[in-house]
């Protein structure tokens, strides 16, 4: 057990921080939501109901999508783009796609490599891009979840104000969707650029 904690301390610590933050977000969001309900003479909701509301769901997944986008972009960009002197970047001479020998795939796979690394067909291609593929799928999945929870919230507000509701496709071109999307994206891109350049000069 002690060895497990020691060998996996990085994700474990961040898992605990994630759960504490999510709990705090849900409690603060619940309180805020019910304060707004009372201000509009509307019924309040239980904590359990708030956890499965579009209000909380959108707040959660709109941040998730931008984090997965950050890693998807970082994985993709760092194949070709470099920052000389940064330990977040490859060396300039290593820019570009890496060889099968370096990835230990196809005929360069080793005895203890995963089965898909050895096959040499589409499954090996999938395996050698699996980090990018899975991160990209999580990005598009959470962005989709943001769009439908945001759509539901948007239409609920439209109904409250006796205004017309919109279709899901209609919501995707509304400023509400793009303001929530881009406010998260800009901070992720700023963070990546900052990390790349700061690590050249700062220790």
């Amino acid at each position: 057990m002690r060895l497990f904690l020691k060998n996996n301390s990085l994700p474990l610590v961040f898992t605990v921080l994630f759960l504490i933050s999510l709990l705090g977000q849900s409690l603060a969001g619940w309180k805020l939501h019910n304060d707004e309900q009372l201000a509009h003479d509307s019924p309040t909701v239980s904590y359990a109901r708030y956890l499965v509301s579009s209000d909380f769901g959108e707040a959660v997944v709109e941040n998730w999508q931008s984090e997965y986008l950050q890693f998807t972009c970082f994985i993709l960009a760092t194949i070709w783009l470099i920052q000389r002197g940064s330990n977040e970047s490859k060396k300039p001479e290593d820019a570009g796609l890496e060889s099968d020998a370096k990835h230990l795939i196809g005929r360069h796979a080793q005895r203890n490599s995963p089965a898909w690394a050895k096959l040499g067909d589409w499954r090996t291609t999938f395996y050698s891009n699996s980090l990018l593929i899975v991160m990209g799928l999580l990005f598009f999945g959470s962005w989709f979840a943001q769009s439908v929870t945001g759509w539901t919230k948007y239409n609920a507000e439209q109904r409250d104000h006796d205004e017309s509701t919109v279709s899901w496709a209609g919501y995707l071109v509304r400023p509400d969707f793009w303001e929530k999307t881009l406010q998260n994206w800009q901070s992720e891109f700023l963070a990546v650029a900052t990390m790349a350049i700061f690590t050249v000069y700062l220790r």
């Binding site: 474990l12 769901g57 899975v134 439908v148 929870t149 759509w151």
Partner: peptide, 30 residues
């Protein structure tokens, strides 16, 4: 190694569960 593999799958299952949950919530409540 089994514990590390379990952590890996946790981080696959956790976001997928959240995404599916809130996609369903969003679609069901509209």
């Amino acid at each position: 190694m089994t514990g590390t593999r379990a952590l890996f799958w946790l981080y696959v299952v956790l976001p997928v569960a959240g995404i599916v949950l809130y996609a369903v919530v969003g679609l069901a409540h509209n």
